[in-house]
Amino acid sequence: MDNVTDGLEKAIKAIKIGVSSTEQEQLYLELEEFLAWLDPLLEVDTAETGQLLFGHDAVNVLKGDYPRQSDLAELQEAAPNFAGGFYLVPKVME
């Protein structure tokens, strides 16, 4: 099995969709064509750019932090069951 066939099968499995054998054959041809199309990208000399996580140098800008008081009564009303300061949920462990 070549790398493209193997990689394609794994990708289809990973994203959890149903693909017919005809569609998979078509996707294989398209993927091979796409990878060949990307060849010029691999030829660009990027030695000077160094390692990076993003394609830009922007630093994360934090949003303003505006604390708000939660309305506990409103939250309790939305919960199916509330008692003694706790939200009661179905037992999940035996």
Partner: peptide, 21 residues
């Protein structure tokens, strides 16, 4: 998903990030 898989990540994804820059 294929492009992010082992081997392809460095070959294609990281290279694309550098081209972006």
């Amino acid at each position: 998903t294929f492009l992010l898989s082992k081997g392809n990540y460095d070959r294609y994804y990281r290279q694309a990030l550098k081209i972006w820059k």
